[in-house]
């Protein structure tokens, strides 16, 4: 079993939390885990990227070569497209459809979404809206984690348990919102997986 996952977004959107939860779940599964993070220069607002490699067999490198990722998971649509060249022909691309327009020359959003939806396996959803419906727009990253969950070969409850443990210090309300967002995202992912 091998999952090479490219995570992308804009600083402050929470991709490193997604990476940490998948990584922790993989450790609990006894998998080999390699996770690489490249932060943008500033803390916020720049493009950020993380590579996550999970494998049942030993691996050496922590980076994923172009055209070989099983999953590209982006919490921002343009950043999804930017990383699309990492995707293997059989891979799945998942993107939050809500743009972060903190640059002057942001391209036409419809063109970006159309390009993403042209991939054979794609999940493009307004994760911020889904998260808001679940109780907090900031749980958007948990919606995207839910969306990718059907494509990872984890036991049913493992990611939910890991979310619970990750947010344990923040109290039951935060856990509940994040789990609800995760479950809503999972439905969207399952719809495509089927």
């Amino acid at each position: 079993m091998k999952h090479d996952i490219v995570l992308a977004g804009v600083g402050g959107q929470g991709i490193l939390t997604i990476a940490a939860i998948i990584g922790e779940a993989a450790v609990r599964q006894g998998l080999h885990v390699k996770q690489s993070e490249v932060h943008g220069m500033a803390q916020r607002g720049g493009a950020v990227l993380a590579h996550l490699r999970l494998s049942s067999d030993p691996i050496h490198s922590d980076l994923i070569a172009a055209g070989s990722a099983d999953v590209v998971l982006a919490v921002e649509p343009m950043e999804a497209l930017r990383q699309a060249e990492s995707l293997s022909p059989r891979g799945v691309i998942l993107a939050n459809a809500r743009p972060v327009r903190n640059i002057g020359d942001y391209p036409e959003l419809d063109d970006i979404l159309a390009a993403l939806r042209a991939f054979p396996l794609n999940v493009v959803i307004d994760a911020e809206q889904v998260a808001q419906d679940a109780g907090n727009a900031r749980a958007m990253n948990m919606v995207m984690l839910g969306a990718v969950s059907p494509f990872l070969e984890f036991p049913d409850d493992l990611l939910a348990t890991t979310i619970r443990d990750t947010f344990a210090r923040k109290g039951p309300e935060v856990i509940a919102v994040n789990l609800k967002a995760f479950a809503a995202g999972r439905e969207a992912g399952l719809a495509v997986k089927r």
Partner: peptide, 19 residues
């Protein structure tokens, strides 16, 4: 050369900015 994603090639960079 990996199959270039034509749309991705022209995407504007997203430099860090003051928050």
């Amino acid at each position: 050369v990996p199959t270039a994603i034509a749309d991705a090639a022209d995407l504007p960079a997203r430099p860090p900015i003051l928050c």
